[in-house]
Computed example of a mutant assay.
Amino acid sequence: MHISADAALIVIDVQQGFQINDYWGPRNNPAADDNIALILEAWKKAKRPIVIVHHDSADPDSPLTPSHPGNALKPYVAAAEPALVIAKSVNSAFYGTPDLHAWLQEKNIGQLFIVGIQTNMCCETTARMAGNLGYDVFFVADATHTFDLKSDDGDTMTAAELSRATSINLSGGEFATVVTTAEVVA
């Protein structure tokens, strides 16, 4: 894997509210935060651009609503010295403020690495849109995590199953190349 000198790291929704287990339920990948931190350090050391995205939920009961302490970024992400910070209220970082696509185009950035929370929600949606927009997308699956999810009809998929499905969707659908933290930091 070749990482461009100006490859952007997109860090999605690494917010304190995702630590509230009673709200979200069972999760996978307890190493996600450590892996995100390793990649952030590698990006800072290489002086590559970092984009921090945070979710401002419109649901007043969500721990990600702007008035809740859970809306805050986790400390290791808050200290990242990003080139750009995006606020969003939907699943894709491309529908946030300021405009991610316009900023990437202005900076002539064509390669993106995606990490964060939740694997199958905001991370996958952002990766799919990036792929459709023509970016060279790398999805660092072990630097993401998600939670078990129940459908309206009561069927449940575990966080591990959802993460596996995301990796298959992204790679099999040719939206992104799925990689590991070890591959990225090497």
Rank of each mutant, 00 (worst) to 15 (best):
C122H: 02
M121I: 14
G110W: 00
S89M: 13
S89V: 06
F113M: 02
T125P: 03
A93S: 15
N108R: 12
T97R: 13
K88M: 06
M121W: 02
W103G: 01
V85M: 13
N108T: 14
E81R: 14
A72L: 10
N120P: 00
S92E: 04
I86V: 13
N108H: 14
L73Q: 07
E81I: 12
Y95N: 13
K88F: 05
A72D: 12
Y76A: 10
G110V: 07
L104W: 04
F94W: 03
G96A: 10
T119L: 06
N71H: 15
A87F: 06
C123A: 13
L84G: 08
A78R: 03
L104V: 05
L104D: 05
K88R: 08
Q118A: 11
N91L: 11
G96D: 10
Q105K: 15
K74V: 15
I117R: 01
V90I: 12
K107S: 03
P98D: 01
A102L: 11
A93K: 03
H101E: 08
L112Q: 10
K107P: 01
P82Q: 05
I117G: 02
V115A: 11
P98G: 03
Q118R: 10
H101N: 10
I117L: 07
I86Q: 00
G96P: 06
P82D: 08
I117D: 04
L100A: 05
P75Q: 10
G110Y: 00
P75C: 07
P82N: 04
E106P: 00
E106K: 14
E106M: 09
C123Y: 04
K88Q: 05
Q118G: 07
L84A: 09
P75I: 03
G116E: 08
A72K: 15
P82I: 09
A93G: 15
Q105N: 15
P98E: 01
N120Q: 11
S92Q: 02
K107Q: 15
K107M: 10
I86W: 01
I114G: 02
I114K: 02
A83H: 06
V85F: 05
S89H: 14
W103D: 05
L100H: 06
I86N: 01
V77E: 06
Q105V: 14
T125D: 11
T125V: 15
C123R: 05
G116V: 12
S89L: 07
V85N: 09
L73Y: 03
Y76D: 13
E81G: 13
N91V: 06
V90S: 11
F94A: 02
L104M: 05
L112D: 09
A102F: 07
G96M: 08
G110S: 10
C122R: 00
E106D: 12
L112N: 10
L112F: 09
Y95K: 13
I109R: 06
V77R: 10
I109K: 08
C122N: 02
K74E: 14
A87Y: 11
S92H: 01
I117H: 02
C122G: 04
V77L: 06
N120I: 01
K88V: 08
G116A: 09
C122Y: 03
E106I: 04
N108F: 10
S92P: 03
G110F: 01
N71D: 01
S92R: 00
I86F: 01
Q118I: 14
L112Y: 08
N91S: 14
P82R: 03
L73M: 11
A87T: 15
